[in-house]
Amino acid sequence: MTNENLIEYIYGIADNSLILGQRISELCGHGPTLETDIAMTNIALDLLGQTRSYYQYVAELSKSDITEDDVAFLRTEREYKNVLLVEQPNTDFAYVITRQYFFDVFHFMLLKELENSKNVNFQAIAKKSLKEVSYHKRFSGDWLKRLGDGTEESKNKAQKAVNDLWVYTNELFQMTSNDKIIAEAGYGVNTEDLKAEYYNAIKALLKEATLDIPEVEYFQKGGKDGIHTEHMGYILSDMQYMQRTYPDMKW
């Protein structure tokens, strides 16, 4: 296992936090109530804070003299390793909440395992993040129940979001060849082991939310190999605008 393996593994985790944090940031100031606006912004802040811890570690591991911002802003689209789920657009509040819940349940389970990593940096980041993510999961889960078991309109919207986003859930557990190397070394997590528990948890909540569990024949994947949906290019052109327009400056 080389540092390059480790860096690649970190991208697979941290890019999810970055891109989801960026997506949620788009909503700041536009929430359905001030309270949800503040809560969603908190989630974005937590995710971006976690991203910084991971990327600072990448900068430490890297052979070249780079910073967390080089990692965040100066990679090309194919170099981002986030799952497709997190780059999906903020279609409406039902999508935002469903995307969040589908991610949070996974994120929590992943961090629980990462807390036992042989790598002390991973242990520390996981430990700190777990507190935050357990709150995210409660927030998104509670809202999904409200939307599912609220009015007829909210139920329809929640069901549509669940149906549309379901195809992106399986990718969360996909193990790349690099993931396997890191997991075998005792540093990373074998996400395949988390899958059954994940779907049990999600299905139980959907049932409580009086929503139907979608049945699909095929799932989407690609993000972990850097093959993204068309949304990704726009996220990056927005996010990287300053760094690309004014290279090598301090802000």
């Binding site: 940031s25 910084r52 965040a72």
Partner: peptide, 26 residues
């Protein structure tokens, strides 16, 4: 400017600032 903030540190600080404003409104 949140989505286009030039560094992660600035992005987080700006998000927190705008969030404070929501809190003041509240």
């Amino acid at each position: 400017w949140i989505t286009r903030a030039p560094s992660l540190r600035r992005k987080v600080a700006l998000l927190a600032k705008v969030q404070d404003e929501a809190g003041h409104g509240l």
